[in-house]
């Protein structure tokens, strides 16, 4: 999720959306495989199925269903295949594919409107995916740090964000104003508003402030408000950092 948010907008993709492209997305779903053993599905087979449904009426209802033909060598004709699908449909099973089918069975299944689902593919896929995701992540998560410097007073109601690095403010920050940075925050002036460093979870980020009178201080999501900051650090030069998952405020000099 984070990776997607951080990625800078792709302008080519944006221009493509303006002509309304066909939207194709990968989709994983859980299907149920029904093993058809022995000969053609007969009354006994359906009776057993009905019996099972009576015991657990909501079990697998409307579930996407795959017919596993591993042990059903005699089921080779499309009419039989269609019968089976219709009978299952009557019991609210939606068969859409076959697996472990022979060539002859495949042809019949195709005629019956079923698709071939390759069995046992999920194992290699699972090995493959996280690695691809990781490599994609490392290339995207290395934007060069960009410092943002502000030399005018930050007024009440304003928010200044340094999305990709440190934030340096030279001037006062009014109560009701907000400073947010991915990295450190430096304030050369009085901080009366809020400062949030390490907004993407960087626990090494710090806040340095020449004159501390803040409403709220936060590093990597851990915060303290003016109520529990203590009087002894008010109007002093301080630094704010995380130590053992605690937010520490320390006077400087």
């Amino acid at each position: 999720m984070n990776v997607a948010k951080d990625t800078p907008p792709d302008h080519r993709a944006e221009s493509r959306t303006s002509v309304r492209p066909i939207n194709i997305r990968g989709r994983f779903l859980t299907a149920v495989a029904l093993k058809i053993d022995g000969g053609l599905p007969d009354d006994d087979f359906y009776a057993a199925l009905d019996d099972m449904l009576r015991q657990r009426p909501h079990f697998l209802v409307d579930a996407p269903l795959i017919l596993d033909l591993d042990g059903a060598d005699s089921l080779t004709r499309s009419t039989e295949m269609k019968d089976l699908v219709a009978n299952l449909k009557a019991r609210k099973f939606n068969a859409f594919g076959v697996q472990n089918a022979s060539d002859m069975q495949l042809a019949a299944a195709e005629e019956a409107g079923l698709i071939a689902v390759p069995p046992g593919r999920d194992a290699p896929l699972r090995d493959d995916r996280p690695e691809r995701r990781r490599s994609a992540g490392t290339t995207e998560k290395q934007p060069t740090a960009v410092t943002r410097t502000v030399t005018v007073p930050i007024r009440s109601g304003q928010t200044v964000v340094a999305e990709h690095g440190d934030l340096v403010v030279i001037g006062p920050v009014a109560s009701g104003a907000e400073l947010i940075a991915r990295g450190n925050i430096h304030i050369y002036g009085t901080l009366r508003g809020r400062a949030m460093a390490g907004c993407h979870g960087d626990t090494e980020a710090r806040i340095f402030c020449q004159n501390m009178d803040a409403e709220l201080l936060a590093v990597a999501g851990l915060y303290r408000t003016s109520e529990n900051l203590g009087q002894e650090i008010r109007k002093r030069s301080v630094q704010v950092f995380l130590q053992d998952e605690r937010l520490c405020v320390e006077t400087l000099g």
Binding site: V152, P153, I154, R155, S156, G157, Q158, A174, S175, G176, A177
Partner: peptide
């Protein structure tokens, strides 16, 4: 004073 500060921010933006 706080409201004036807010207005000063709007004046500059």
């Amino acid at each position: 004073v706080r409201d004036s500060d807010r207005v000063l921010g709007l004046l500059s933006s």
